[in-house]
């Protein structure tokens, strides 16, 4: 019980991670794959943010009144990682648009089929 409730955030992170990862692997739709990838990345952000959290801690601004602070570094790191994640998503979507223009489809199996037909012709 202690592990279940005490590590609640971590369980959520792992559940999201597995869900995201499954979508990336199992889905043939290029947009849905990117959605899965985003869920996967967000789970890692939650993992980092949970690490920095302090129960009853406050924001790390120095003041006489408080003694307990949350660790700021993991949170700062995740700001950077979010930016990286956005860049990745943007590039992925841009590629998807160009794939749609070139093939008229965003389904991976269909595109592979078109490519195979090209190769044989």
């Amino acid at each position: 019980m202690e592990n279940l409730l005490g590590l609640y955030n971590y369980w959520v992170a792992i559940a999201l991670m597995m869900m995201g990862f499954y979508i990336v692997i199992a889905n043939g739709n290029l947009i849905k794959k990117l959605i899965g990838l985003n869920i996967f990345q967000v789970s890692v952000f939650i993992l980092f943010i949970s690490m920095g959290y302090m129960k009853n801690g406050t924001a790390p601004i120095y003041s006489e009144a408080y003694t307990l602070y949350a660790a700021p570094l993991p949170h700062v790191l995740i700001l950077t990682a979010i930016v990286v994640g956005i860049a990745t998503t943007a590039l992925g979507l841009a590629l998807t648009i160009r794939i749609y223009q070139a093939y008229g489809s965003i389904d991976e199996t269909e595109i592979t089929k078109i490519d195979l037909m090209d190769m044989n012709s």
Binding site: L34, L37, G92, T96, R98, A102, I111
Partner: peptide, 12 residues
């Protein structure tokens, strides 16, 4: 055009 899907897969 195959390069697009190749880049996409590499991205994922």
């Amino acid at each position: 055009r195959q390069s697009l899907l190749a880049a996409y897969r590499y991205l994922i």
